[in-house]
Nucleic acid binder design. Structure first.
Length: 434
DNA sequence: TCTGGGGTCCTAGGACCC
DNA sequence: TCTGGGGTCCTAGGACCC
């Protein structure tokens, strides 16, 4: 048996914890550069605002409907997420943190009434963090995910499903006719693993509901869409195919990419941006205790704008795997110089670290010009740099090539509506007035 | 006239997730 | 004027091996 615990409208809920005046109002949280809506309160959803809606297309709702838009405050959301996850972990013996606002809980061996237990955990998360969440329970991960969807829909649109499924929903508790009713009134596109393409293809075949889908013959699913969808199909029928990944799996690639606050045409700001992105990526790499074998750099113009198009990337292999910021940056900057062409308004660029391997597997090498002691000193330098930056804040120590202004007047991010980092920066901790 | 069988590795592209 | 960022897995096809 599995559970999925999922924060409701997570980013918006995080903001509301510290600004209760936002309760009951339509609120959206915007992506980087205040580009588009990436989280919406129920009231914002009710206004018809779609996930990913560009801000300039919905900003008239600010005046017309009292919509509040906030810049993304990922520092806050990450910290709130940690708190929520550690409480959700109390639901069962294993936990897989699946995304910033969701975790799967393995319930094997848990005794007593699961639904009651889930309600308690939900209440505790709400009381201790202020985040409302939905909990879905099912005999497979896919069914738990579906149960979670039912729990949230039942809460938001009463009357969609039979009573008693709002907020906490255990599909395994239903009689077969009740389950059939739920699956028949849920669109197949809501299923975890069925995206836009497959959902359109299924609908074209007359397969609209989850119930329709699980009634398809296995060979048809396998033949037309492959093993991935077959797994989903089996899971929906109660056959567990996907386990809870209790241990976090190391990443196979690490990326840091950004859209620019304004178009970038010159090489200098581009170099600065890439240097900064590489530093960020290298920090993640060291946190994972891995080395990278290759660095990929890309830059491109906006796909939404007219004018000359540009999109290029290059993979720069390293002479030996490294997690050293300056080694990785040197490679990345060489890559940028190789692909850069003047005359384009670049909208976005990024760095990806590829060919990752544990730093314990580093192969020794004869290197007359680069003695092993030098390597060790560099590693110590990186440890020291990470410790200083952890303690005193990002970019306390940085590479000169990243620049000291964060590209404020060139490539830097636009974020005019960001709330304070209430829980992680002393100077921004909220003050309580009597 | 006739042209094997079985592998591996890599890459690009497409689908999905939040 | 203005459209996010970070990942995963699978498949097909080509190069190459014996």
């Amino acid at each position: 048996m599995y559970a999925l615990v999922d924060g409701n409208n997570f980013y918006v809920s995080c903001e509301r914890v510290f600004r209760p005046s936002l309760n009951g109002r339509p609120v959206v949280v915007l992506s980087n550069n205040d580009g588009c809506a990436i989280a919406r309160s129920n009231e914002a959803k009710a206004l018809g605002i779609k996930m990913g809606a560009p801000w300039f297309q919905i900003r008239h709702l600010e005046e017309q409907a009292g919509l509040v838009a906030l810049s993304a405050n990922f520092t806050l959301y990450g910290d709130m997420s940690d708190r929520m996850m550690s409480l959700a972990a109390g639901l069962g013996p294993t936990q897989e943190v699946y995304s910033i606002d969701e975790s799967f809980i393995g319930l094997h061996g848990v005794r007593g009434d699961l639904v009651e237990r889930a309600w308690k955990i939900r209440a505790r998360i709400h009381q201790w963090t202020g985040i409302p969440c939905g909990i879905g329970i099912g005999s497979t991960k896919t069914l738990a995910k579906l149960a979670n969807h039912v729990a949230k829909t039942a809460e938001r649109k009463p009357g969609t499903y039979a009573d008693g499924m709002a907020s906490v929903c255990d599909l395994s508790k239903l009689r077969s006719d009740q389950l059939r009713a739920v699956l028949s009134s849920t669109e197949v596109g809501e299923v975890w693993g069925v995206g836009r393409q497959i959902s359109a293809q299924l609908t074209a075949l007359g397969v609209k509901s989850v119930q329709d889908f699980i009634e398809l013959p296995c060979e048809v699913v396998r033949g037309k869409w492959g093993v991935v969808l077959e797994r989903t199909w089996r899971e929906l029928r109660g056959e567990a195919c996907i386990e809870v990944a209790d241990m976090p799996v190391p990443k196979q690639q690490i990326a840091c990419t950004r859209s620019f606050g304004r178009p970038v045409a010159d090489l200098a700001p581009l170099l600065e941006a890439i240097s900064e992105f590489t530093s960020r990526a290298a920090e993640k790499l060291r946190k994972q205790r891995h080395l990278a074998g290759q660095v990929l750099v890309f830059a491109r113009t906006s796909p939404f704008r007219d004018g000359p198009r540009f999109s290029k990337s290059v993979v720069v292999p390293l002479r030996r795997p490294s997690a050293d910021t300056s080694t990785l940056t040197t490679a990345a900057l060489a890559g940028v110089r190789a692909i850069y062409q003047p005359g384009f308004n670049l909208a976005k660029a990024g760095v990806m670290l590829l060919d990752l391997m544990p730093d314990t597997q580093m192969q020794g090498e004869l290197a007359w010009d680069d003695p092993v002691t030098g390597q060790r000193d560099r590693a110590k330098l990186m440890v020291a740099m990470d410790q200083v930056n952890d303690r005193f804040g990002k970019r306390t120590v940085l590479l000169g090539s990243s620049g000291i202004t964060l590209g404020a007047d060139t490539w830097g991010m636009k974020q005019v509506r960001r709330t304070p980092r209430y829980t992680t920066v002393w100077g921004e901790v909220p003050t309580v007035r009597a």
